[in-house]
C-alpha cells in the first residue's frame, strides 16, 4: 500500500498532507490522555501483525488490519495509523516523509468510514449480523484503500492507469483475507475480551 517517494504529483501530495493533518487533528482532539497507552499499544500490535504473512495459493500477503483498527478507534485511527507508518518512513524509508500524509489518508479514511458504517453492526448481539459486518469491515477497508492508492496514481498521470488497475486487482485476494481475519478476530475478541470492543477510545 506504500507509494514510493518522488512518484506522486505535487497537488496529490499536498491534498493528502492537508487531509492527513486534519484527520490527525480531529483524532488527537478526541483522544483522552488516559487512552494514550492503549491506543499506542494497539498501533504497535497492528504494526507487528502487519509482518504476518498469510499464505494464499503459492503467494502470500501481509495483513493491513486498518478495518479492525478503525472499528475500535474511530477517528483516533488517524493518529494511530500515522504513528505506525512513521517508523517505517524514517527507519525503513518505506514511503517517506512527503507521502506520509497521502498514505495515512489512504489507510485511515477507509478505517474511519468503516467505523461509521459497521461499528454498530459488529457490536450487535446477533452472530450473523455481527459476522457479516466484521467481514465487510475488513473487506471494504482494503477495497477502499486500494482504490485510494489507485486514485492517487491516476490523478498523478494518465500513464499510471495500467499500474493502478493492477494494484486494485492484486488486492482482491487481500480483501477476502482481511475480511476473514477481521471476522475471526472480532469473534475471538467477543469470546475472550468483550470489553475491548466496548471501550470508547474516541470522545464523541
Amino acid at each position: 500500500m506504500h507509494i514510493s517517494e518522488g512518484v506522486l504529483a505535487a497537488p496529490v501530495l499536498l491534498v493528502g498532507a492537508a487531509l492527513g493533518l486534519a484527520g490527525t487533528a480531529v483524532g488527537l482532539k478526541k483522544l483522552d490522555y488516559d487512552r494514550i497507552p492503549q491506543v499506542a499499544l494497539l498501533a504497535a500490535a497492528s504494526f507487528v501483525a502487519s509482518f504476518i504473512h498469510v499464505p494464499i495459493g503459492p503467494a502470500s500477503v501481509h495483513l493491513v488490519l486498518n478495518g479492525i483498527l478503525g472499528v475500535m478507534l474511530g477517528w483516533v485511527a488517524f493518529p494511530a495509523i500515522l504513528i505506525s507508518l512513521f517508523p517505517q518512513a524514517i527507519m525503513f524509508q518505506f514511503g517517506g516523509l512527503t507521502v506520509l500524509g497521502v498514505t495515512t489518508c489512504n489507510m485511515a479514511l477507509p478505517a474511519v468510514l468503516g467505523y461509521y458504517a459497521f461499528s454498530a453492526g459488529i457490536r450487535s448481539p446477533k452472530p450473523f449480523v455481527s459476522g457479516l459486518c466484521s467481514f465487510l469491515c475488513g473487506f471494504v477497508a482494503i477495497l477502499l484503500s486500494s482504490l485510494a492508492v489507485a486514485g492517487c496514481l491516476v490523478l498523478t498521470g494518465g500513464s499510471f492507469w495500467a499500474g493502478a488497475k493492477m494494484i486494485v486487482l492484486a488486492h482482491i485476494p487481500v480483501m477476502f483475507i482481511e475480511g476473514f481475519i477481521t471476522l475471526g478476530c472480532v469473534r475471538f475478541l467477543k469470546k475472550v475480551k468483550p470489553e475491548m470492543l466496548e471501550v470508547v477510545y474516541a470522545r464523541p
Binding site: L42, I52, P55, F180, G184, C185
Partner: peptide, 17 residues
C-alpha cells in the same frame, strides 16, 4: 489457517490491551 491467524491477531490485541 485463516481462523488461526485471526485468533493470533486477536490474542495479540488482547495482550497489548
Amino acid at each position: 489457517t485463516y481462523r488461526t491467524y485471526a485468533y493470533l491477531v486477536g490474542m495479540l490485541l488482547v495482550r497489548s490491551f
